[in-house]
């Protein structure tokens, strides 16, 4: 089966197409969001370590909270929500 050329997902309700293999974190940055979430004191945060350790890139993926977006590849139809 040929690889699809792009993967379409929704980030905060907006459709986005990315190359296969793109992580959710990269997709969120591509979509123009640098703040992925609010810290416990309410300050904006984005990815730090890029390797699944720091938990700063957490977003809600398909309704599941606390998903580390740097560790998850984009899948067709994925629903991603930032800002939690």
């Amino acid at each position: 089966m040929p690889m699809p050329e792009t993967v379409s997902l929704r980030i905060n309700g907006k459709e986005l197409s990315v190359a296969p293999g793109t992580t959710v974190a990269a997709a969120i940055l591509i979509a123009g969001h640098s703040a992925f979430r609010r810290s416990v004191a309410g300050t904006p945060r984005g990815p730090l370590c890029g390797m699944g350790i720091c938990f700063e890139c957490r977003v809600t993926v398909n309704g599941e909270p606390h998903a580390r977006s740097c560790q998850i590849e984009c899948m067709p139809g994925m629903e991603v929500r930032t800002g939690d």
């Binding site: 990315v18 974190a25 990269a26 940055l29 990815p47 730090l48 890029g50 390797m51 740097c70 590849e73």
Partner: peptide
């Protein structure tokens, strides 16, 4: 503001 390895990983994964 990211890690050095962190930004590299991000670029490798599509940024």
């Amino acid at each position: 503001v990211m890690g050095a390895g962190g930004l590299q990983a991000m670029v490798k994964s599509g940024l």
